[in-house]
């Protein structure tokens, strides 16, 4: 008799635990997917036209403000953005993300010293983006850049280092 009521009790407790775990998992899995997986459509940002190649001089970085279209959550926005362009030869150009790789302060080209300098913590980068001084952990980030019909087009995604 005691044994039977003991068995019943443990059956109840096991059933409660199993069903509760099942329900928790059934909710937790979609909730985790909902929060953690990147939504569709957030990557299809196209190329933006930033400048004419003829406006740039080889070896002289130039900051360009341009307009780009971007998917921002449920909105498509048109916004201003900037990039440092360095013309490397007759046909190609490098486009740097204008944020220091240390803590994302906006850096500038120091003409006389011939390098990029960050005003926050003194990181310095050579014209090809390599770190030459300061706490920056990696070279300047780049945008995918290509030249088509004399126009410079750059991508949205940042290519690290």
């Amino acid at each position: 008799m005691v044994n039977e009521s003991h068995t019943r009790r443990s059956f109840y407790i096991n059933a409660i635990n199993v069903l509760a775990s099942l329900m928790a998992a059934a909710l937790a899995i979609p909730a985790a997917a909902y929060l953690l997986i990147r939504p569709k459509g957030s990557e299809d940002n196209g190329l933006s036209e930033v400048a004419d190649l003829s406006q740039l001089t080889i070896g002289k970085p130039q900051e360009v403000i341009y307009v780009r279209k971007r998917v921002d959550g449920w909105h498509k926005v048109t916004e201003k953005a900037s990039t440092w362009l360095v013309r490397t030869d007759e046909h190609s150009v490098t486009a740097f993300n204008p944020a220091c790789t240390h803590l994302a302060c906006p850096y500038h080209w120091d003409g006389p010293a011939n390098h990029f300098i960050c005003p926050c913590h003194g990181s310095a980068f050579s014209i090809d983006g390599k770190v030459i001084a300061g706490p920056a952990p990696r070279p300047l980030d780049r945008y995918v850049a290509k030249v088509e019909g004399g126009k410079i087009l750059i991508g949205f995604q940042v290519d690290q280092g």
Binding site: P30, A33, Y34, S42
Partner: peptide, 10 residues
């Protein structure tokens, strides 16, 4: 419901 994973489920 169209872009977020499991969004339509939630």
């Amino acid at each position: 419901v169209t872009q977020v994973t499991a969004g339509s489920t939630i």
